[in-house]
Design a protein around this nucleic acid. Structure first.
Lengths: 348, 348
DNA sequence: CAAATAAGGTTAAACGTTTACCCTTTTAAT
DNA sequence: ATTAAAAGGGTAAACGTTTAACCTTATTTG
C-alpha cells in the first residue's frame, strides 16, 4: 500500500516507468490525459518516490545539513529553525547533526551529513582547525560557515563582528559613567569571547580606562555559568558597578545571583548581555543587550548554501547609526545595542 | 578523493566488492591480513559508503525521525535533543521535521520522514485525527507517539497525565487559601489545555470552589501570549489572587505584565506555571511550576521506537509522594510540583 | 504532397550497495 | 589416504530511480 514503486504505477497505468518518472518530476513529453491518469494512480496507490533510489542516480539529496553544537540551546535552535524555514520553502529536508563542542564530534557530524549526501551544509564550528575547514570547503562548494571568519574562504563565511560588539558595549557603559567594569565571558575555547573582550578593552582604552584583570571571569555560557561567574566576581571582593556579559543566558544568571546577594540591577550594578534572545525582553529587569541577528544570518547562510539568490531585504537592515561598510548582502553582520532596563547611569 | 566507491577500494585492494562490503560491515569470511589491507585503503582513500545505495538494498536507513511543531521552542528542542542523545548512542542519525501546528503539515512531515526511509519515528502530533494516526501506526510498527494518548495504540503512547497535573496545581493553590483563581491557557486546538483545566476545576469542586468563567483566558503559548492573556485578565476587572498558567513561557510573560501593571508576584498574585524549563529557576521571582519530565519521556520514546530495551532507571524516578500506579517503565508520566517563589499563601 | 518538426512515448544503462549462492583451498577427522 | 568441513573469497542479481538515446505517429510548413 504505502510502498508501491514506480513500476507498479507504470504497470497499472500501462506506460513505461520513464513516463511515470516524468510526471512525478513534472517533466515534459507526457500528454495531458496520460498525466492525469498517472497522477490519479499515484494518489490512490499512495506512491511516494524512494528518495534513496533517486539520490543514488541523481547524486543529489534535496537535503540541507546543519551542524550545531546542541539542539537544546535556544540560540542554536533559532539558527536551525531559520535554516529550516528556508529549506521548506525550497522543498528541502533539514538534517541536523550535533557537534557537542568537540573538534572530533564536529568533524564526525559533518562526515555523517556528507555520507547522507547533503551537498549543502551550514556549519557552526568553533573547534575544527582552519586548515581542515579550508580543505573541506574546497572540496564542497556549497558549504557555508556561520559565526566564524576564515580569510581564505571569506566568501562563504557569515559572521558577526565581535570586536565591534565589544566596542559598542563599552561605549554604552562609558556613557553611563561606569568606571569599574567587570566582564563575564564564556570559558569555551573559541575565539568569540576573546574578540569581544578585545573590542571592549580597546574602546575602554580610548577613554583612558583600564580593565582590572580580577574583574574578568570565565564560565560556561549558560544560566548556571552566569551564576557561577557572578559568585566568583563577588568573592573577589573588588567593587564594580557594571558588567558586560558574554550572552543573555549568562546575563540572566548573573542578574539572578546579583539580586540574591542583595545587589539591585540596574541601581547597584548595570548588566549588559549579548544575543537578544526572546527572553531578554521578558526577564526582570528587562535586559539591555547586543542584538545578534542570528535568524537573519542563518537565513542568509541557508540561501547561500542552496545557491539561492539572496534578497537584499532579507539581510541586515541598513541602520543609519550603523551603516554596513560592505556592499549588501554583506557577509559581515554587526550587533546593535538594544537598551532596556538592566543598565543605568551610575548613581552615588 | 572523498567520493571513492566500493569498487575503487576493491580494485585497489585486488579483491571483489563483496569482500570490501564485508569488512565495512564487519562481516565474516575475510582473512585478517586482507581485512587489514582493506581497512587501510578505506582510510587513505577516504571511502565512505553511500548511504543511499545501502538503504536502497537493505531498506533500512539508520535514521530516526522526530516530528515536532517547531525547533525553536525550548520545550520541543529539549525533546529533540533527548532523542538525539539516544540516537547517537546507537549510531543513528537524527532527522527533524517540523509540523508547524497544522494537521496537513504534520502529516506532510511524517510522509517526508517516511520517504527518507526512517523506520523509527517519534511523533509529537496534536492535530492529526486519531483514526489517521491509528492507521499510520498499524502500518509502521516503530512509530511512537509522544505527549498524546490514544487508547487503540496505547502501548506506543508516551504521555503526561494532564488531568492529574491540573489537580496538583489546584491543590497547591487551595492550600494557599486562594479563592479567586484565574487560568491562562493555550489557545491551540489541542486537548492538553482542556485536560489541565478539567483536572483543575474538578479539584476545585472537591473543595466546593468554582471557577469564574471570566477568569479563564486563552492565548498563544508563548511569552507574548502570556502577556496578552494577562492584559485580557486585567481588563476584565474581576479580581483574582492566583493564576494557573499553561506553560512557563506564558507564566513568565504573565509575571512580566503583572508587574508592569503594579501587581507584585507573589505578594498580590500567585503564579504557577507548567513544564519546569531551565529558565523557570532563573526568572524573577523564581517560578513555581509543574515539572514536565520531557527529557526522560523523549528518551523513553526514542528507545521504544528503536526497539531498545528500556532501562527502568531511565524512567521517571519512583517518588514516594507520587508513586506511579503502573509497572515500570510506565508509558504514563505524572507531573511533579516544584515550589519556588512565585506562589505564596494569600495575604490580607 | 513531401519533408520537417513536434508530441508522446519506450528501452535500457547506470547509480553504489548487500547478500545468496557458488567455488577453491586448507585443515581436521577418520 | 581419503573425505568432510571450515575458511576465504568471488559472481551476479537486486533494490527503485533517472535520463540519454531512440522510435513512432500526428501536425505543420513550403
Amino acid at each position: 500500500m504505502s510502498n508501491a514503486t514506480i513500476k507498479d504505477i507504470a504497470k497499472a497505468a500501462n506506460v513505461s516507468v520513464a513516463t511515470v518518472s516524468r510526471v512525478v518530476n513534472n517533466g515534459p513529453k507526457v500528454g495531458p490525459e496520460t498525466r492525469a491518469r498517472i497522477v490519479d494512480l499515484i494518489e490512490t496507490m499512495g506512491y511516494r518516490p524512494n528518495i534513496n533510489a533517486r539520490s543514488l542516480v541523481t547524486n543529489k539529496s534535496s537535503t540541507i545539513g546543519v551542524v550545531i553544537p546542541d539542539v537544546a540551546d535556544p540560540f542554536f535552535a533559532a539558527l536551525a529553525n531559520s535554516v529550516d524555514k528556508v529549506a521548506r520553502q525550497h522543498n528541502t529536508q533539514l538534517l541536523i547533526s550535533t557537534g557537542q563542542l568537540s573538534a572530533d564530534s564536529e568533524l564526525e557530524a559533518i562526515k555523517l551529513l556528507l555520507q547522507q549526501r547533503c551537498e549543502s551544509i551550514v556549519i557552526h564550528s568553533k573547534l575544527i582547525p582552519n586548515e581542515t575547514l579550508i580543505k573541506l570547503f574546497n572540496d564542497n562548494p556549497n558549504f557555508v560557515l556561520i559565526n566564524r571568519y576564515i580569510e581564505e574562504i571569506a566568501h562563504r563565511c557569515i559572521w558577526l563582528d565581535n570586536i565591534e560588539g565589544g566596542k559598542i558595549a563599552a561605549k554604552s557603559l562609558i556613557n553611563c559613567k561606569h568606571l569599574n567594569i567587570a566582564c563575564i565571558l564564556s570559558n569555551y575555547d573559541i575565539e568569540d569571547p576573546s574578540l569581544r573582550l578585545k573590542g571592549f578593552t580597546e574602546q575602554l582604552k580610548e577613554s583612558n580606562q583600564d580593565i582590572d584583570q580580577k574583574l574578568v571571569v570565565y564560565a560556561e555560557p549558560t544560566l548556571q555559568g552566569g551564576e557561577a561567574a557572578t559568585q566568583q566576581l563577588l568573592a573577589a571582593n573588588t567593587p564594580f558597578s557594571a558588567v558586560f556579559v558574554y550572552n543573555d543566558a549568562m546575563a540572566i544568571g548573573a542578574i539572578s545571583t546579583l539580586e540574591d546577594n542583595g545587589f539591585s540591577v540596574p541601581k547597584d550594578v548595570s548588566v549588559i548581555g549579548c544575543d537578544d534572545v526572546l527572553l531578554s525582553r521578558f526577564s526582570r529587569p528587562k535586559l539591555t543587550t547586543l542584538q545578534y541577528p542570528i535568524e537573519t544570518m542563518a537565513h542568509h547562510a541557508a540561501k547561500l548554501s542552496l545557491n539561492i539568490a539572496v534578497n537584499v531585504d532579507d539581510c541586515q537592515p541598513q541602520d543609519a547609526s550603523h551603516p554596513s561598510p560592505d556592499i549588501l548582502p554583506s557577509l559581515k553582520y554587526t550587533p546593535v545595542l538594544i537598551e532596556r532596563e538592566s543598565t543605568a547611569i551610575k548613581t552615588d
